[in-house]
Design a protein around this nucleic acid. Sequence first.
DNA 1: TCAGCTATCGATCAAATGATCGAACAGGAG
DNA 2: CTCCTGTTCGATCATTTGATCGATAGCTGA
Lengths: 318, 318
Amino acid sequence: MDKFDRKLDQAARAAWLSYVGGRTQDEIASQLGVSRPGVQRLLALARQEGLVKVHIDHPLANCMVMSDAILKRFGLDFCDVVPADPEASNGSAHYLAVAAAERLARYLDRSEPLTLSLGTGRSVRAMVEALSRLDRPQHRFVSLVGNVARDGSANRYDGVMVLADKTGGERFLLPAPVVAGSVEEKEAMLNQRLFQAIAEVAKEAEAAFIGVGRIDRQATLFQDHFISEAELDELLSRQAVGELLGWPLNQNGEVIDCSITRRVTSLPLEMFRDQALVALAGGRDKGPAILAALRGGWLKGLITDENAARFIIEAENL
Amino acid sequence: MDKFDRKLDQAARAAWLSYVGGRTQDEIASQLGVSRPGVQRLLALARQEGLVKVHIDHPLANCMVMSDAILKRFGLDFCDVVPADPEASNGSAHYLAVAAAERLARYLDRSEPLTLSLGTGRSVRAMVEALSRLDRPQHRFVSLVGNVARDGSANRYDGVMVLADKTGGERFLLPAPVVAGSVEEKEAMLNQRLFQAIAEVAKEAEAAFIGVGRIDRQATLFQDHFISEAELDELLSRQAVGELLGWPLNQNGEVIDCSITRRVTSLPLEMFRDQALVALAGGRDKGPAILAALRGGWLKGLITDENAARFIIEAENL
DNA sequence: TCAGCTATCGATCAAATGATCGAACAGGAG
DNA sequence: CTCCTGTTCGATCATTTGATCGATAGCTGA
């Protein structure tokens, strides 16, 4: 890997010359003694490896105003609103990921040992992907939602896995699905020694980065067959609009007590009252779910996008 | 200025789409509803206004090794070594400025009131230029070196001026030249109430960012006629190799006692023993001067470039 | 109200960038 | 020793970007 490192060095130097120094690839080529396409490749490598971090240093007035309003309204510690990108198919997922990674990095920067927990979902996954490598073997990362799918297979590339790989920290994975098949199954899981041990670690976490789920036909819970169609209908009839870690919430953010709730294996939301629970979700159609989470007072931090933020602002008449 | 702000907003959005989102100017144009050249202009504006911050996230092995060696050798709190740019006429001045601005920003980030002092010189000036705007009206900035030229004119664009403009902080300017015309003149200056008041503020500073001067025919002190040719020769004959705030240093970093020293109006170097004195200088020919400052143990932090760093490493057999 | 000026905008062109493809080279197997 | 395979490198071309210049619109002052 020495060869690779040497290449990365050169890539960093090329990136420096190009992005900070503003010189052309031709100049860089003659300076580093490689061909112009060589420089091209180096720069591509640098970007691919995440060596190049771009930061736009301007509080986009829109976003700024909205984030401030939400911050004050719900008494959050922080609220980041990233601009929307209607052109991109996945909304502003990438911006969200970058912003979230910046928040995450602030925690990780600490040199004292730290315990962090992570939920599942694309957003969380994208966040850790966007994070740059950072040597922090002293930290511990807990997955709050089982990395076991319905069929029992473990997901090698859980967010916690990637994060632990990037930092060299310890990993703790909950050996359970989000929603157990039955109440008995849930009981059995909760009584496992391993489950309890890991739950214990999760309790020590300082912050938790989680996604926010919608409750409708597009809901992950339903799509991944954790709940049946009948159960989805039950949730809808009981006015469920969102979900945190599998716990269904109504419009006011209260956890709905129903047949599904009794099978959720996640740690109770109450547990996070004295942790920094950070939600990470964007898109107008996640608006109601995010709003519910906010109204319930569950969150300490929110990273969202313009569309969801606007929905919240309008719904709350801010 | 509302118009301008609106434009800046759009510029930030365009920059975001371009640099973070990686889309082409055509796409951005159709999205923002302006022409392609319009996007071009917006991006130019964004860069010019310093909205776009690029950070290369890789410890360039060379620089890393050298900065570590220097750090350990001289017991510094930090040492940043930026890569050299032999192509650029002014060496790596811009890189140096960016790196220094990053350090400076770390101090400024604090919300509690802070007092900082600044020296003069191109490097210091370039540092504050490279800094992004940041609202910190609670901070105070003191100029350690008089902003009065030999002819009595005040320099409107002193580093402290720019810094105070950018942050909205308070400014304190030393109403004196670096080296007084005579011992009597120095005495007169030091006894001014205003001078003493400002010196008092400077004593409260937490950190000081200063340049390092060479002592030779290219020396700023000489070029700006603060010392005569005869005096320069005197300094050289007494083995002066560098200068901090106008105080000449010999090879071992000791302040040289001579006719010039008695006319220097700057605050005594001893005063900075319990402040974070950060030096900011690059280029191989500044090597001896920087080395002297290091050997004297005056510095807590150093921001330099590959060339000067290599000189130091070699001179100290590291 | 109109003339003149300035600032902004968009068409056009040169430069720089990114991508593809074929060639050369090194390493390993027969 | 030769041939094959996989990789890296550099020439070439399409696309994107940056800059210049003329035109237009809006503003100022008479």
